[in-house]
């Protein structure tokens, strides 16, 4: 489904579109690809669902969303999909994943909530517990402190050259 040119294009676009009148032409020029081809490929990748959304990626923290919590639950494996589906319906949930339990970490369902403050996040968590029936399961709330790094996913080839974040 993806060819080499798609991958090269994604690598560059993940760094962010130039803020200048012809951003797709600029990206194309670094890949020897025409502006039309860049746009056509991006449209196709979006239609295929490889690109979930294309647009402005905001920094929650700087915009007043100071409380970021990762909440983890230990739920029965046969309920993960259903509960994950319910959790994802809430607008304040920004991510929801299933991950394997580990010896020192019994949790298998993860979600992320970005809120303006702790009290709001805890209230939103109460809503989740109530509406999704999560109250009976073991859980932990991990608020974030420092952000050391945040950027788009750039897939490194084992031997490839490294892209720097401009």
């Amino acid at each position: 489904m993806l060819d080499v040119r798609d991958r090269q294009l994604i690598e560059i676009v993940q760094l962010g579109l130039p803020v200048s009148p012809r951003p797709y032409a600029e990206i194309g020029s670094t890949l020897s690809m025409s502006e039309d081809e860049v746009i056509e490929r991006l449209i196709r990748l979006k239609q295929n669902g490889l690109i979930k959304r294309m647009g402005v990626i905001v920094k929650h923290h700087q915009l007043g969303y100071r409380a970021n919590a990762m909440i983890v639950w230990n739920v029965p494996d046969n309920l993960v999909k259903q509960l994950g589906g319910h959790i994802s319906q809430f607008a304040f949930v920004t991510l929801c994943y299933q991950r394997p339990r580990q010896a020192e970490w019994p949790y298998n369902l993860y979600c992320m909530i970005h809120g303006k403050d702790r009290a709001t996040v805890l209230m939103q968590l109460d809503q989740l517990n109530e509406f999704c029936g999560l109250a009976g399961f073991d859980r932990e709330i991990l608020f974030s402190r420092r952000c050391f790094k945040q950027r788009g996913a750039i897939y490194q080839r084992a031997t490839g050259t490294l892209l720097t974040h401009g």
Binding site: V19, L50, I57, V58
Partner: peptide, 30 residues
């Protein structure tokens, strides 16, 4: 263009770009 540059300079936006679901182009782990 200037408003977006300002938002960028003030770190209100990370970038303009695609969101790609994990595990489409490779593998990921937390």
């Amino acid at each position: 263009l200037s408003a977006l540059t300002e938002l960028n300079d003030k770190h209100f936006i990370s970038r303009i770009g695609p969101i790609i679901p994990p595990n489409q182009l490779g593998v990921s782990t937390l």
